[in-house]
Design a protein around this nucleic acid. Structure first.
Lengths: 164, 164
DNA sequence: CCTGAAACTTAAATCCG
DNA sequence: CGGATTTAAGTTTCAGG
């Protein structure tokens, strides 16, 4: 996690080509050194250093993270679960969100358009683990109207890369 | 990206509590030093260093990445797009996948159970950009039967954290 | 806003017990 | 695996254009 200075501005930082070049590289390899980045962008370390610092403080770079392979840590099953609520009041929605977000199995929760209210992505070991989650965790959440589970047969692509 | 040694084994590495502890920390902050990790886990640098190296080579840690905030780089709109194919032969499926994966707007592509064949996640600036993608890119892909777009109203949770 | 070099700081990697 | 050492490296700063 980025440790911002006290006076975080989060001002709408305008990014130019050089910033994008830096992001492009750091997105793929966060451990790339400033020197290396500088040489690839035909710059020196100073501007690269300062641009990275700015992007960290502006929240453009949210985090430096190790990406773990789910398959290798017994979390090889991904399930998408659609959820509709009974009550849509602000209060009830907030309560639902608080409960859902707390589940470590839920790696994603999206408020969506269409027939359902939410889509959550659940990451578990296998079908047994999903049943366990579905019955004992999701099943204990208030205010659920109906749900639908979609199973992921295979992950074709999954990236956080957004700068090209 | 992790630079593995030549003889990559990718053997089913058995992870113990200490490995999980390391992953847990690196998932949140890839820049955490080995010393820091060691002290938090009541270990010395040697075992931590070696465990990390093993997990990198085994592919448990796939990558160290800077996580960028989509909102801050003009990619604030997320759309889920369901896709059904006409032809489901291996050859046609592979062609579809090749084309879809090449689109930089597609940050995720899942082969799913249920009514549709695939779910792709599209990350763009705004609705105009999505229309542009939908018409000129997705629309040019062969073998599509029908599609359905679901718009993400808000992202409640989005994490790659899987070790707790 | 950049260059270039220098100074500083810190971590990675090794070795022996 | 602990502990310390060594070596190497990256980060950060500064003057100057």
């Amino acid at each position: 996690m980025i440790h911002k200075k006290e006076n975080v501005t989060d001002l709408p930082l305008v990014l130019d080509e050089k910033d994008m070049g830096i992001l492009k590289l750091l997105q793929v390899d966060a451990k790339m050194t400033i020197r290396n980045i500088a040489s690839q962008l035909n710059l020196t370390t100073t501007p690269v250093y300062e641009r990275i610092r700015k992007m960290e403080q502006a929240g453009v770079i949210k985090q430096y993270a190790a990406i773990v392979d789910p398959q290798k840590i017994d979390k090889g099953l991904t399930v998408l679960c659609y959820i509709s609520l009974k009550e849509h009041s602000k209060k009830c929605g907030a309560k639902f969100i608080r409960e859902i977000v707390a589940f470590t199995e839920v790696t994603e929760c999206l408020n969506i358009s269409g027939e359902f209210d939410f889509l959550i992505k659940v990451q578990v070991k296998d079908m047994n683990a999903y049943r366990e989650f579905y019955v004992n965790k999701l099943g204990e959440v208030d205010n659920l109207s109906h749900t639908q589970s979609i199973f992921v047969i295979s992950v074709i692509k999954a990236t956080h890369q957004m700068v090209y």
